[in-house]
Design a protein around this nucleic acid. Structure first.
Ligand SMILES: [Fe+2]
Ligand SMILES: [Fe+2]
Ligand SMILES: [Fe+2]
Ligand SMILES: [Fe+2]
Lengths: 243, 243
DNA sequence: CATATAAATTAGTGTATACTAATTGTGAAA
DNA sequence: TTTCACAATTAGTATACACTAATTTATATG
């Protein structure tokens, strides 16, 4: 009806999946990110670990890794388990970057503790063009809102130490909550509440290895973290004041 | 390595697909949107049309529609072809709204002619929570950047007429480029270049049915549109000045 | 009504992604 | 070295989504 009496619109696909380049699927992108993080941190890369982190069964991992090897993203040669090839690494860095840029975008309207989960969905839908626009719009960020360095800026984090490695009396600035901890929205919400977020100055009150806790004072408030959490939080140690 | 000597982080899936609610897939969401648009405009809803608009083969449509019927999103009872059930309509309105909200979000960093294509990818990754945050952040928009009304605001567009229905001398304000035309990035880029965008005042110079063209003057510049394009552009007629 | 055209569906395939159950490897401890 | 625990893989299955080729159903038109 309507105006079809006049002209018939050119019948081109209107809503269609981009099938130009054999685009990497969200699933594979998630594998790439996990592999990237484990490799970057020098952690062991074993199938079970991937299965746990990705929330799938071990056979699924075996299967998917095979496809990734077939597609040249992953290599199995090393005895240390599967690892990213050059193209795989490049793809992984791109997804990581897009995840982080998306987090900054979302942080304009969602709270710090919620952007990661949202970004994890959206990251797979960012195009080259949008990525470039985001980088410009965000003024070339070097970390994500949680302080994790963008690929290529790992040096930034070189001197940041995990809270479990601090000693009572240390004066620090909170710098980073590790990627693998970002998924725990409860933890993130707690950290946000307590101002244990990048940029916050903090003083180490006590470290109790037998109790597996670290207590900080942040903005005049005491916060006690269990080692499991504290391990994932990194801080920059301030040079002791010459007083 | 690293700190694994201390504590082993709780092994919870970190990067995983949400499998809580049987979430509607991007594919199905795209079907829902097309069905919504065709139904809203009172256009015939036939499989071939869907196949063309979605860029898939007719058997794929048959197949997918069956799944949608099975899932209660589409009904086949009516003789006028497949149509959305109440749950299907609700889901369709949600996706449409998210698409449009995403367009506004992206319009902060991408040009008007490019936001639709990008939004078409991202729309499927917007959560309830982000949607709410977007609506607030965008100050409750009632149309998309191309002037299409959000679901529930169709009345807004009731008086807007297609350019092909205008007569020489008409003074109008451009209000809307129809959804089905948004996909044509070349056309959109052309319209943007010529300021044929929502909000622009225009005067109809001539309408040549035999030539299938409409010529406008926008911002002092003449623009000639073919009927196929003009059909998809809607304008608000201004009451003639009492002069 | 008969038939040409268009639309829809069947039938048969293929890939990606997941699962469970069962089997095979592997390294470490006894 | 034997065995146990854990890791990895194989085997078999399932669903979503796509395709081509062939067939069936409608529609329309003379
Ligand atoms: Fe993140
Ligand atoms: Fe993801
Ligand atoms: Fe759009
Ligand atoms: Fe879409």
């Amino acid at each position: 009806m309507l105006f079809s009496a006049f002209v018939k619109m050119e019948e081109r696909p209107v809503f269609h999946k981009g099938a130009m380049t054999d685009k990497i699927s969200p699933t594979i992108e998630d594998y790439l990110m996990i592999l990237f993080i484990l490799q970057r941190d020098g952690e062991a890369v074993q199938g079970v670990r991937l299965a746990e982190l990705l929330g799938v069964s071990p056979p699924t991992v075996t299967n998917t890794l095979k496809r990734m090897v077939r597609d040249g993203l992953v290599s199995m040669d090393s005895p240390h388990g599967p690892h990213l090839t050059d193209p795989g690494m490049a793809a992984a860095r791109t997804v990581m970057r897009r995840h982080m840029l998306t987090e900054w975008l979302l942080s304009r309207m969602l709270s710090w503790s919620k952007v990661h989960l949202q970004a994890h969905e959206i990251e797979h839908a960012i195009s080259d063009e949008l990525e470039a626009a985001l980088i410009a719009d965000l003024n070339h960020p070097t970390t994500c809102p949680h302080g994790n360095p963008l690929p290529g800026f790992e040096d930034l984090a070189a001197d940041w130490v995990s809270l479990v490695n601090l000693r009572p009396g240390d004066e620090v600035v909170i710098r980073r909550i590790h990627e693998l901890a970002e998924e725990d929205s409860q933890l993130l919400h707690f950290l946000e509440e307590k101002s244990v977020v990048p940029g916050s100055p903090a003083r180490v009150v006590e470290v109790l290895p037998f109790n597996q806790t670290v207590t900080l004072e942040v903005h005049g408030q005491a916060v006690t973290l269990g080692f499991a959490a504290a391990q994932q939080v990194f801080a920059e140690r301030l040079a002791p004041q010459t007083a």
